[in-house]
Design a protein around this nucleic acid. Structure first.
Lengths: 152, 152
DNA sequence: GTATACAGTACCATTATAGTACTCTTTATA
DNA sequence: TATAAAGAGTACTATAATGGTACTGTATAC
């Protein structure tokens, strides 16, 4: 249920690593090695995170990436939004009756989904990168699931 | 970000429809027509919902499906869990260091993910099928996103 | 006994995701 | 000012999950 992609997982790993030394400039190669994610994938993620305004980049010989804000100013919504795309909902109605809100009950449902969405959004907003560095209060070990997916 | 599949969306549509007449027996065909989802897909979903103990089924000529519990006793976690699979997390560590919790920071992150997971879980648990029948307090219309995905 | 309706399973097509490669631009420094 | 280091941008491919369908089996009312 409710999935978060591998790349987002990596992205959080990357940001958490960089948060260890929050003002430092990291090269893509450094990050790749530290986190254990292949360089091409790492660079791709770093670029995306720059686009999402979570990282600043510096080009040239002594270039690299660094956090755009302090770790406690970066929440998981920011990260997930940057890596998985914008918040949004499907069009109203079913496939058979697109946009036909009056005809079906689906529109009322969609608006209710937004209630849920908001709750999920808030949940993600509450956790910052700074907190992710710390161990959870009650660490629990759940059994592994299939195929490297984070299933919430 | 955080996606809910089309089938889950349909499933909620189906359950919401059946909740209109909560003690009645519905045939798969009836449901299919009412909700506007093709019969094969509808039956697949109905079967899955029976497995998830959200519906009871009755075989034979006068058979059909009905809600296993009252609509206010069925939450969105139940539905989403039934249709998208069990709650769980990936294995600890990165692809390079599977299960190697000490070596990397990822394990601490995973346990923190569970905090988020719990929040999401709670958010879904708070909304019941009974509530889904009602219009939201503040209905908002967000722009449509791509490819029939519910993006939370 | 037969028609109806659900149960179970296995399969195929589509699509999103993950991952990679290649070319271009910027900048420090020798 | 030439060069090498490092990021920017884009486009492509393979894999895997999802969505959708078909087929065979089983129960039950009339």
């Amino acid at each position: 249920m409710i999935r978060i992609g591998k790349l987002t997982d990596y992205g959080i790993l990357i940001l958490t690593h960089m948060a260890q030394d929050e003002a430092r400039l990291f090269t893509a190669q450094e990050v790749s090695l530290a986190v254990g994610v292949p360089l091409p994938t790492t660079t791709k993620l770093l670029k995306t995170l720059v686009h999402g305004n979570l990282l600043d980049s510096q080009r040239g010989t002594k270039g690299g990436y660094l956090l755009a804000r302090r770790p406690d100013q970066i929440s998981m919504v920011d990260v997930v939004t940057a890596l998985e795309g914008p918040v949004g909902l499907t069009d109203c109605g079913t496939a058979q009756h697109p946009g036909d809100c009056q005809r079906s009950i689906s529109c009322a449902i969609k608006t209710n989904w937004q209630r849920i969405n908001q709750a999920v959004h808030d949940a993600l907003a509450q956790v910052t990168l700074a907190e992710m560095r710390l161990p959870a209060v009650h660490p629990v070990h759940l059994p592994a699931s299939r195929a490297n997916l984070l299933r919430v």
